[in-house]
Design a protein around this nucleic acid. Sequence first.
DNA 1: TCGGCTCTGTAATTTGTATTACAGGAATTG
DNA 2: CAATTCCTGTAATACAAATTACAGAGCCGA
Lengths: 283, 283
Amino acid sequence: MGADDITIAERIRAQLHRFTPTERRAAHSLLANYPVAGLETVAEFARRATVSAPTILRFVGRLGYSNYPEFQRALRDELDKQGQSPLAKSSYGGAEPDGSGPNAAFCGALIDNLQTTFSHISEPEFHTVANLLGDRHRRVGVIGGRMSDALARLFAAHLAVVRPGVMHLDGQPSNWRDLMVDYGPRDIVVVFDIRRYQEDLTALAEIAAGRGATIILLTDQWLSPVSRHARHIFSARIEVPSRWDSMTSLLGIAEALLAAVTEGRWEEASRRIAMIDSFRRLP
Amino acid sequence: MGADDITIAERIRAQLHRFTPTERRAAHSLLANYPVAGLETVAEFARRATVSAPTILRFVGRLGYSNYPEFQRALRDELDKQGQSPLAKSSYGGAEPDGSGPNAAFCGALIDNLQTTFSHISEPEFHTVANLLGDRHRRVGVIGGRMSDALARLFAAHLAVVRPGVMHLDGQPSNWRDLMVDYGPRDIVVVFDIRRYQEDLTALAEIAAGRGATIILLTDQWLSPVSRHARHIFSARIEVPSRWDSMTSLLGIAEALLAAVTEGRWEEASRRIAMIDSFRRLP
DNA sequence: TCGGCTCTGTAATTTGTATTACAGGAATTG
DNA sequence: CAATTCCTGTAATACAAATTACAGAGCCGA
């Protein structure tokens, strides 16, 4: 909750010269074993620094905290914000979390997938797509396959909060096709399609592309046949030690896109969100 | 590293099944915000886990500590031993993919989340849940919140392929409640609920729990209020550099569960899949 | 060298915390 | 279905911690 992003340690280091000699001992002791010393009791902290308890209190007072618990709370907040759970996160070089159960392998695969997936993203294309999706004058239709349609729903639900004109295409395939009447050169169709590709979707994409709509495809590394008609393609790694394919990296891309779009038009988005919130309070 | 290489977190995870229900809530709360929760006062810890102070004390007692300060000291010792000053490290603890664009940061956050999330999973509990979900005699209802419902759908869709009796609860809240008539002690309700928790879901969980159903909750690190009624809880890290929360790690858990369930009953599952495939060819 | 000032620790006080006893209630077992 | 056991929270208690008042020690300038 710090107003500034500067850590307590850095603040101490910066003001070190303004402390009295014993207070400086306290400061050094704290910096030497950083968060821990400050999380002990005053007495223990004092003993560790070989100063008296009141000196510790004067030290934290000078740092701007009105009492010791407040200081400790600040330290804990920082510890919490910080990359989280330093205990859980071991060295981690490539992609193996600690432990070695079956879940560790699964997690490692997910991480590898994410890393590979993101490293293949073209930044310029990414931003082009983010801008397209942020353009409120373009209608956006979102659709997915049998399993990936859940991601399509999620994507559409978020995007619809940020901007108008977003629609998740569901129901019967004949239904989608009918909706394509409304789509033209200014409009966008986002398609999620991974392995065990569906002919439905390819057919839809063909129709939409024929009408001049821009198709954005999120697929796996082998590329759905929809790619034939897509203007922009994002491919994700989906292989994990499972009978099923993983959609986490695909979701990762979707979330990254949503983050970029939302950030890009936050002015308006925040107003929309506030309004939606106000609706909630009505019932 | 340390004298004993086993961390407190691991010990908790290993013994999770030996705790009473409320103690387990305390354990989950601690694991979800690992060292920090335990460094707060008993009262704060209790409030965070929504249990009473004595429950916290009984929890640490069962872990083998004779009093709370001793437990805290152990946590601090661990924190101290652990590669020193996690706060001093750059803001990125471990996992930066190459490159340094905004997407690299996003990807790094996703990876951190996944890693932390998986490291908090209790293997025994994981397998208990996998077995529960694999039991074809238990009905399974799956539901999610406004945004997380997409994951619920995805989960239900996969699970329904592997075994019978799976249902995604959608439509009006009144609709779900009506369905609860059919649920009893042998049945399971899987709830996805992350920040901006919905009262609907808590109400549903209460009803289901009242009827004796086993509730499995997939939530974020702050634990949805549904946790009050849940028998099994999985908490995921969801913070990313975005206006939205990330659901990738939650999806990761869901996929891991699906992998385990499917593997556990592959004999039958494969037959079902083959049959479903044969249906497709009919048109 | 002396007086004033700041710094520092000791000891008393106060505050807040952990702890424990107990009773109601849920779940379980025969 | 009843009796018992095990949980769980409330409230009172005991304890330990933070805080404050005060006095001596060291330091600087005069």
